[in-house]
């Protein structure tokens, strides 16, 4: 077993652990922090089901963003939808036997990779070109985009130019939980790709990538408009009722 295989296995496991523990901690914090007053942006649905659909539309269609800025919406959808297709496509590297459907979507997954990078380049261009967006952009905003672009580019390189030993990779990944490490294919695009992905996973709970959890906990979107009929006294606000 090579030094490289061991290092990569450790990095990947560590990255996954940081992602899971970090996100779980944040989600826990969001969930237990009270929302003492109803603040949905109105008009809002009157029922919880309605509010759930509203959040669903934000997550899947980027409804509010569409109202705000059509070009930004296009770049964002290209990136996020592309990323989703890419992630689904990548499942076959983790599953011992890829189901039929997963095989069928492979071409879309490849298109997704291209869409993702195009979207990211659009997002980067906005940050450089538009004065308003340049003003609010910090080093980490550019860094996150470059990281994602590098991940996409290294992945596309393997898809279209320098193919890696995919069966070897699969064997390596499958061997990690067995504690019987198989060698990782020793080629630069793959190792680069995996290291960048590990980096992305590690920064997620500590960066603006937290929006992927935040969007589900945003009170202006996930609350229904029911304050007129239901009281919502937060635990810390209960003593106030006794004061009057």
């Amino acid at each position: 077993m090579s030094q490289l295989s061991l290092t990569m296995a450790v990095v990947l496991v560590l990255a996954a652990a940081i992602l899971v523990v970090g996100m779980a901690r944040k989600i826990w914090l969001y969930a237990v922090t009270p929302a003492p007053l109803r603040i949905p942006t109105t008009p809002a649905p009157f029922t919880r089901t309605g509010a759930a659909f509203r959040v669903g539309r934000e997550v899947m269609l980027f409804e509010s963003l569409f109202k705000a800025d059509k070009l930004l919406w296009v770049f964002s959808v290209l990136f996020h939808l592309g990323l989703l297709l890419v992630l689904v496509r990548h499942l076959r590297y983790f599953l011992p036997h890829a189901p039929e459907a997963l095989v069928l979507i492979q071409p879309f997954g490849k298109l997704g990779g291209i869409a993702m990078v195009v979207g990211l380049l659009g997002l980067l261009a906005r940050r450089v070109i538009l004065p308003r967006i340049r003003y609010i952009t910090s080093a980490t905003d550019i860094g996150t985009l470059l990281l994602l672009i590098a991940i996409g580019a290294s992945g596309l390189t393997m898809t279209y130019f320098i193919h890696t030993d995919i069966m070897g990779l699969k064997a390596f990944l499958a061997s990690i939980p067995q504690f019987d490490l198989q060698p990782i294919p020793d080629d630069a695009p793959l190792v680069t790709h995996l290291l960048l992905v590990a980096g992305l996973l590690m920064i997620t709970p500590f960066s603006k990538l937290l929006h992927m959890a935040g969007v589900f906990f945003s009170p202006t979107r996930n609350q229904c408009d029911d304050a007129r009929t239901r009281r919502h006294v937060a635990p810390w606000a209960r003593p106030y009722d006794q004061q009057r």
Binding site: Y30, I133, L210, S218
Partner: peptide, 22 residues
């Protein structure tokens, strides 16, 4: 931050997309 979920979530979640800027 402990009392208001809105504050906690909103301080974390902004991606600086600029949709609000104008």
């Amino acid at each position: 931050l402990e009392k208001y979920r809105s504050l906690r979530v909103y301080l974390d979640s902004c991606v600086k997309c600029g949709a609000c800027a104008d």
